[in-house]
Design a protein around this nucleic acid. Structure first.
Lengths: 137, 137
DNA sequence: AGGATAGTGAAAACGACTTTCAAATGGTTT
DNA sequence: AAACCATTTGAAAGTCGTTTTCACTATCCT
C-alpha cells in the first residue's frame, strides 16, 4: 500500500481515485502553489475525468485534515500547497507571480512577543512580502 | 470647505454625496475594519440611499487614491480601513473578530533582510497573526 | 460477492464583486 | 442662474470563484 493511501486513511478519508490523484499532483508540484483551477487543469492534462466540484471538495478536506495548507494571496482567491513539516513564510513577486519561501526565527520570536503584549494566544499567522523578483525588476 | 472635500479634490475625485458620506463613515469607524457590506449597512442606518455598487466603486477609488487600505483577512474577502500615516500589522482574534494593530521594527528590518537575500525589492507586505484575544481564551 | 455508506460529476446555486446603461449630479462657462 | 457636458450614480444583469444538491457510483466491511 502506497504512502498516499496511508496518509488518506490516517486522515479518516476513503481511498478514492480523485483523492489519490489530487494528492499526487500536489506532491509533484514541489512547493509550487496551486489554485483549485490549476489542480483541475493538471488532472485533465493527465486524462483524468474529475470534476471541478470534487477538486474543491477534496482540497477542503485535505486542508481540514491538515494535509495541505490554504493561502489567500493578494487577489483574494485560494491557493494550496502540501503541508510541510517546517513552517515558512512567503515572498511573492507581484509581476510574474513567483513565490519563494523563507523562515526567519527572529520574526517568529518577535511575533510571540507582540501577541503576548496584546494578551493574545497565537494559533497561526501569515506573513507575505510583496515585491519584484530579481528577473522582474 | 471641509477636510473631506479637500482630500477628495486632492485625489482628483469629484466631491459627491456618496463619496463624502463613505469617507465620514470610514473616519468614524476609528480604526475598525469595515467590509463593503458594513459600509453599505452604515449608510442605510443613516438613511442614505446609496447603492452597494457605488460603495464598491468608491472604496476601490479610495484605495487607488491611497486614502484607504484594503486587507484580505482569512476568509478571503476584503475589509477596508482609513490609511494612517504609520504602517502597522494586525493581530486578529479568530473567535470574536477583534483586530488589534502593532508595529515592530525588528520584524520590519528582518523582512528587508529576507527580501534582499532572495533578490527581491519589497513594495509591500502583510503580516497577520491569528489567535484568541484575552476575552476569548 | 453484496450491501451500507461515503464519494462522485453535472448542473444549479451562491456570495462577493464588477459592469452596463440610462438617468442624475457636479463643476464650469456664459 | 441657465445651460452644458463630463463624471458619477443606482438598479439590474453579469462575472468569477466556490459550494451545494441530487441521482448515481465506488469503496470498504463482513
Amino acid at each position: 500500500m502506497s504512502g498516499e493511501n496511508q496518509e488518506l486513511r490516517a486522515a479518516g478519508l476513503k481511498v478514492t481515485l480523485p483523492r489519490v490523484k489530487i494528492m499526487q499532483i500536489l506532491d509533484a508540484s514541489e512547493g509550487r502553489h496551486m489554485s483549485a483551477e490549476d489542480v483541475y487543469k493538471a488532472l485533465r492534462d493527465s486524462d483524468e475525468d474529475i470534476g471541478l466540484a470534487t477538486v474543491y471538495r477534496v482540497l477542503t478536506q485535505f486542508e481540514t485534515a491538515g494535509l495541505v495548507m490554504r493561502h489567500h494571496f493578494e487577489g483574494g482567491h485560494s491557493v494550496f500547497e502540501m503541508m510541510s513539516e517546517d513552517h515558512h513564510d512567503h515572498i511573492v513577486c507581484t509581476k510574474c507571480g513567483k513565490v519563494e519561501e523563507f523562515f526567519d526565527e527572529v520574526i517568529e520570536a518577535q511575533q510571540k512577543i507582540q501577541a503576548k503584549a496584546k494578551g493574545f494566544t497565537i494559533s497561526d499567522h501569515s506573513l507575505y512580502i510583496y515585491g519584484l523578483c530579481k528577473d522582474c525588476q
